[in-house]
Amino acid sequence: MIQLTLYTTLGCHLCQQLEGLLAQLSREPVALERVEISEDDLLLARYGVRIPVLVDAVGNELDRGFEAERLATWLEARGWLDDKAWQALRCGLNGEDEAPEACGSIMRGGRRYLS
């Protein structure tokens, strides 16, 4: 199980978005310790404009983890990324802009075929 800390605040829709992406892209289940920053002036000063901030066990931080590509890169660097889930999400986000091979299809003679 992956142990992470999430610096957040009540009603943070970006934090909810990050949690959803994290659940979708993680190779293993994730245990999140949520830290409410509004109850601590030091935390509010440090994270107030940066939330959501995700922190791993050794203290490495990820700002803007609600951006799928940033989160995927961060997870991949730690060996936690589910590559198939990331590929599927990329295809859904980018649609036709993604290379056909990356989205499970191949091009032959100008036609797209599902592989």
Results as ranks from 00 to 15, higher is better:
residue 86 W to M: 03
residue 45 A to K: 09
residue 46 R to L: 13
residue 80 W to Q: 07
residue 21 L to S: 04
residue 31 A to D: 06
residue 34 R to A: 15
residue 92 G to D: 12
residue 56 D to S: 12
residue 42 L to A: 14
residue 66 F to V: 00
residue 99 A to G: 01
residue 21 L to A: 07
residue 34 R to F: 12
residue 108 R to T: 02
residue 16 Q to A: 13
residue 38 S to K: 14
residue 80 W to E: 08
residue 16 Q to Y: 01
residue 23 A to F: 03
residue 98 E to C: 02
residue 46 R to I: 03
residue 82 D to Q: 00
residue 44 L to E: 12
residue 66 F to A: 01
residue 36 E to M: 11
residue 24 Q to F: 04
residue 54 L to C: 05
residue 59 G to V: 08
residue 77 A to N: 11
residue 79 G to I: 03
residue 49 V to A: 13
residue 12 C to A: 08
residue 50 R to F: 11
residue 9 T to V: 12
residue 17 Q to L: 08
residue 113 Y to Q: 08
residue 86 W to L: 01
residue 9 T to C: 08
residue 45 A to L: 08
residue 39 E to S: 15
residue 93 L to I: 15
residue 111 R to M: 05
residue 76 E to Y: 01
residue 13 H to K: 05
residue 100 P to I: 01
residue 38 S to E: 15
residue 86 W to G: 00
residue 75 L to H: 09
residue 45 A to Y: 04
residue 74 W to H: 07
residue 38 S to R: 14
residue 108 R to S: 05
residue 19 E to G: 03
residue 99 A to K: 09
residue 59 G to S: 06
residue 88 A to F: 00
residue 50 R to E: 02
residue 34 R to W: 13
residue 3 Q to H: 15
residue 57 A to Q: 15
residue 58 V to A: 14
residue 62 L to D: 12
residue 3 Q to R: 15
residue 62 L to F: 08
residue 70 R to W: 09
residue 70 R to H: 14
residue 103 C to N: 08
residue 92 G to V: 03
residue 38 S to F: 12
residue 35 V to E: 08
residue 72 A to Q: 05
residue 75 L to S: 07
residue 81 L to K: 04
residue 64 R to M: 13
residue 103 C to W: 03
residue 28 E to F: 14
residue 112 R to W: 00
residue 51 I to G: 04
residue 35 V to T: 09
residue 30 V to I: 06
residue 10 L to P: 09
residue 46 R to K: 13
residue 19 E to S: 11
residue 29 P to S: 08
residue 40 D to L: 02
residue 112 R to N: 00
residue 54 L to M: 06
residue 72 A to N: 07
residue 14 L to Y: 13
residue 26 S to W: 09
residue 20 G to K: 13
residue 29 P to D: 06
residue 18 L to M: 12
residue 79 G to R: 07
residue 66 F to R: 03
residue 77 A to Y: 05
residue 85 A to M: 01
residue 42 L to C: 06
residue 37 I to N: 05
residue 37 I to C: 01
residue 15 C to I: 07
residue 97 D to I: 05
residue 36 E to A: 13
residue 101 E to N: 01
residue 62 L to Q: 09
residue 111 R to T: 02
residue 98 E to V: 12
residue 71 L to E: 05
residue 115 S to W: 12
residue 108 R to V: 11
residue 39 E to I: 11
residue 12 C to Y: 03
residue 4 L to V: 11
residue 91 C to E: 05
residue 72 A to S: 10
residue 57 A to Y: 03
residue 2 I to W: 02
residue 77 A to H: 11
residue 30 V to T: 05
residue 55 V to C: 06
residue 26 S to D: 03
residue 29 P to E: 13
residue 100 P to H: 00
residue 92 G to H: 14
residue 22 L to T: 00
residue 111 R to V: 00
residue 44 L to G: 03
residue 72 A to R: 06
residue 95 G to L: 10
residue 51 I to P: 04
residue 34 R to D: 11
residue 4 L to P: 10
residue 8 T to C: 06
residue 79 G to V: 03
residue 22 L to H: 05
residue 1 M to C: 00
residue 17 Q to G: 05
residue 43 L to E: 11
residue 103 C to F: 02
residue 62 L to W: 11
residue 36 E to W: 07
residue 55 V to G: 00
residue 34 R to T: 10
residue 28 E to A: 10
residue 99 A to N: 10
residue 110 G to N: 10
residue 2 I to D: 08
residue 85 A to Q: 06
residue 62 L to I: 12
residue 88 A to T: 15
residue 67 E to T: 04
residue 11 G to E: 09
residue 45 A to M: 04
residue 85 A to V: 06
residue 43 L to K: 14
residue 26 S to L: 02
residue 1 M to D: 11
residue 70 R to C: 05
residue 108 R to Y: 07
